[in-house]
Nucleic acid binder design. Sequence first.
RNA 1: GGUGGGUUGGCCGAGAGGCGAGGCAACGGCCUGCAAAGCCGUGUACACCGGUUCGAAUCCGGUACUCACCUCCA
Length: 428
Amino acid sequence: MFPLFSLVAGIGTLLIWYYGGWSVLRDELSIGVLMAASVAAGDPERWWALAYRVELEFSSAYAAIGILPPTYEPRATASIGEMQSMIARLIERGHAYAAGDASGDVYFDTASWAGYGELTAQRREDMQDAADADPRGKRDPRDFALWKGRKAAEPATASWPSPWGDGRPGWHIECSAMARRYLGDAFDIHGGGLDLRFPHHENELAQSRAYGDAFASHWLHNGLVNVNGQKMSKSLGNSIFAHDVLAQARPVVVRYALAAAHYRSTIDLHDGSLVEAEAAVDRIEAFLLRSGRALTAGAPTVLPVPEAFGTAMDDDLGVPQALAVLHETIRSGNASLDAGDLAAVARARAEVRAMTAVLGLDLSADAAGRDGSAAHGALGALVGQLLERRAAARARKDFTTADEIRDALAAAGVLVEDGADGTHWSLG
RNA sequence: GGUGGGUUGGCCGAGAGGCGAGGCAACGGCCUGCAAAGCCGUGUACACCGGUUCGAAUCCGGUACUCACCUCCA
């Protein structure tokens, strides 16, 4: 759900283990089985079809707000063998055990791993098990499932044979096994939502390290997105939400709204935040439009981002401060425009374009006359005629007629602005 | 009970011992036939109580409120 990962992928050469929003795509097994089990008995949709439908919805929402596509999105169901061999080795090493009951479950033995709790700085002794937890075949309530024996109510298509009986992998092992398969036994960054730090990431770390992998060097945990003060649902609600938000504002505005707060803070998306983001984006676009008109003759200059922008981004992805640099550059560029200092305008414009490129803000108004469609051309011809008549009226100081034309255009959604370099119109 | 966050001006949202990030909104001015856009200006904000310091939104101690996670599921 966050531009965060595309930002990281966009500015560096870091190896990312896409997680967070992507988890739904990859954990099709667990989510599909769970959700299919909870829907009405008469629902004909299979768990894998359901999971895939959700995956498609997420993918299209991500693409819409300009999140770079992952290099690869492995599926849990394609790595069952890797998970089983990981589990087998954990048992060999004394870090896991098959449940004493007939469940077919296999658990990770948290007491056997001294580093348990290191990611979230918790001491194992202090951890309190949920009052309503079902101890099942665990030796200790803090142990977690690596393999889950099949239950009668679960679909046969979500069950695999294993040395410990038919069943399916536990949630955490899916990620550890896929990480080592596709990224190797050591990789740079593991990302994810703050809500997944414990137990999920803690458990992944424990089992992967116990297995012998170095695992992730860094962890990147992003804050969650609230909607009108409400915590977002982790299930299907998210995709509906994304759909709704994208219906309310342009994708670039949604991206701006999500990026405006630091990635680690909780972002509250309310109706007002979209309006504010729209205003900010409009301001950026207006500058690009204005400067583009002023500089038509000159070839676009390519400049690096301002140093302050780079410093902000380098400091734990300080996007809010980077945006401040962007707006400051625009303010100064606008002032240069008013002063007629075209060299400064060109510099500001090149810097703004460099910054918006880094931020992944796809601004369509980067050049005047962006829309080359036939409809736009026809509209332009008609508006042009009206503006000519208005110009004539203004020339003879017939402001009543001039204002009538402007009002009529405004009523049709065409904004007319008189600048020092002539009259411009835009759809707004 | 454990762990980790949060509380900043009308709103959003950075910052992290001295200089009021930035955006939105508002008000004044310049520009404009009038507008719009743009520019210039206007704000003594940091939950509360103590403490340290020449100086605290920032450090220390405490209090209040609040959010998240605590291996059932993902």
